[in-house]
Simulated assay, not measured.
Amino acid sequence: MTMQQPDLQLGKVAVLMGGRSAEREISLMSGRGVLTALRARGVDAHAFDPAEQPLDELKRQGFARCFIALHGRYGEDGTVQGALELLGIPYTGAGVLASSLAIDKIMTKRAWLAEGLPTPRHVLLHRGPHDAARLQAVVAELGLPLIVKPSREGSSIGLTKVTRAEQMDAAVATAARLDADILCEQFIAGDEVTCSILGTGEGARALPVIHIVAPEGNYDYQNKYFTDVTEYRVPCDLPPGEEAAIQALVLKAYRLLGCRGWGRLDVMIDAATRRPWLLELNTSPGMTGHSLVPMAAKAAGISYEDLCLQVLADAGLDYATGGDQ
């Protein structure tokens, strides 16, 4: 993949990192990497933590655009995007509506299902007491094993793989500590892959697919960010034609939600049927040393620094007027 070199007249840039979500630690790691890369390419970039400064300081301090390296709530869910729209400061990644939809796994599924895109079967539970009969009904509907997770968290935070019916109560309680909406999802046994997207609309392009091989299939928070035991196969080792089919599918899913700039979609491939199933879409992907978008970009011949520069150059506004990009 070739990349057009962006115009370096980007002005004063804020790298938004940290924030107030459960993914604060990862966001700080992402933000520091982005900040270092942008400065290495001559960008006037500065760290900005919304948990420590009010967002209107961005305007007062003269920032021309923002690179959003926030993850999870208050950063990837449309809230910061809406504030930046009001401030008139272009920002990276999906806009208000697409961010709000994508952070909510239930709403994302509803949108994909409405257009016939494949995603695992699910049941929505709400925070509160659930009697044994209700939880047993979920098990009966989805089968075992199944996945229980908060609807609006990332990085596998609050996720439980339920292998026995008696685990349901604890799994739901774990998810409920993080979100009032709890997603119970059919477990797809097979290959776990991820595919990153760069660009907007018809100009969006898929990067190489990464096949994730985690110890005992456990690609959890610890194995995502803090160990080196997970294997990332890129170029991937999928059968002929499967990679292209997955890239085409994730592009449809990305465009359907109205995403722009960049994103990453997680997919499971059923071992028996080889059918791909969409899990979720990340609109502010990680940029740490273990992160998957820079890994895929490298496989496509794009350096970490060039990736950061391209994402920043694509910053925009949903409600651009006049000279706004």
Rank of each mutant, 00 (worst) to 15 (best):
Ala133Thr: 13
Lys109Ile: 13
Glu153His: 13
Val96Asp: 04
Ser99Leu: 11
Ser100Pro: 01
Leu135Val: 04
His122Gly: 05
Gly154Asp: 04
His126Asp: 01
Val172Ala: 07
Lys105Ala: 06
Asp169Ser: 14
Ile157Asp: 12
Trp112Tyr: 06
Ala98Asp: 04
Ile147Thr: 01
His122Glu: 09
Val123Thr: 13
Leu97Asn: 03
Gln136Asn: 14
Val139Asn: 00
Trp112Val: 05
Ala140Pro: 00
Arg134Pro: 01
Asp169Gly: 02
Gly95Trp: 11
Glu153Asn: 04
Ala175Cys: 06
Val96Gly: 04
Leu101Cys: 00
Ser155Asp: 02
Gly143Met: 11
Glu141Pro: 01
Leu101Arg: 01
Ser99Cys: 04
Val162Asp: 07
Ala94Trp: 13
His130Cys: 14
Pro150Asn: 03
Leu124Ala: 15
Met107Gly: 04
His126Val: 10
Ser99Asn: 03
Glu166Asp: 15
Ser156Tyr: 08
Asp169Cys: 05
Met107Glu: 08
Ala132His: 10
Ala111Gln: 14
His122Thr: 04
Lys161Asp: 03
His122Leu: 09
Val138Arg: 03
Val139Cys: 10
Leu135Met: 15
Val172Ile: 14
Gln167Glu: 15
Val162Ile: 06
Ala171Phe: 00
Leu146Val: 04
Ile157Ser: 08
Pro129Arg: 15
Thr92Arg: 11
Ala98Cys: 07
Arg110Thr: 02
Arg152Cys: 05
Ile157Asn: 06
Val148Lys: 08
Glu141Gly: 02
Gly93Ile: 02
Gly95Ser: 13
Ile157Phe: 10
Ala173Leu: 09
Gln136Ser: 15
Ser156Pro: 06
Leu97Cys: 11
Leu142Pro: 02
Glu153Met: 08
His130Phe: 12
Leu113Gly: 03
Ser151Ile: 11
Pro118Ala: 09
Thr92Tyr: 07
Val148Arg: 07
Leu146Ile: 06
Lys149Val: 06
Gly95Cys: 03
Ser156Asp: 05
Leu144His: 06
Met168Pro: 03
Glu115Asn: 13
Glu115Gln: 14
Arg110Glu: 13
Gly116Lys: 08
Arg164Tyr: 08
Ala165Glu: 15
Ser155Trp: 02
Lys105Gly: 10
Gly158Val: 04
Pro120Arg: 07
Ser156Trp: 01
Gly116Leu: 13
Asp104Val: 10
Leu146Ser: 09
Ser100Gln: 13
Leu124Cys: 14
Lys161Gly: 00
Ala114Pro: 05
Arg152Pro: 00
Ala111Met: 15
Trp112Ile: 03
Lys161Cys: 11
Leu117Asp: 08
Val148Gly: 02
Arg127Asn: 10
His126Gln: 14
Val139Pro: 04
Lys161His: 00
Leu144Asn: 08
Ala173Gly: 05
Met168Phe: 06
Glu115Cys: 07
Ala137Asp: 12
Pro150Gly: 07
Thr92Leu: 03
Thr108Gly: 08
Leu159Pro: 00
Ser151Asn: 13
Gly95Met: 08
Lys105Asp: 03
Leu146Asp: 01
Val148Met: 09
Ala102Asn: 01
Ala94Met: 01
Pro145Met: 12
Gly116His: 06
His126Thr: 15
Ser100Lys: 11
Pro145Gly: 13
Pro150His: 04
Gly158Gln: 11
Ser155Leu: 02
Gly116Glu: 10
Thr92Glu: 03
His126Trp: 13
Leu125Gln: 08
Ala165Gly: 01
Ile147Lys: 00
Thr92Asp: 06
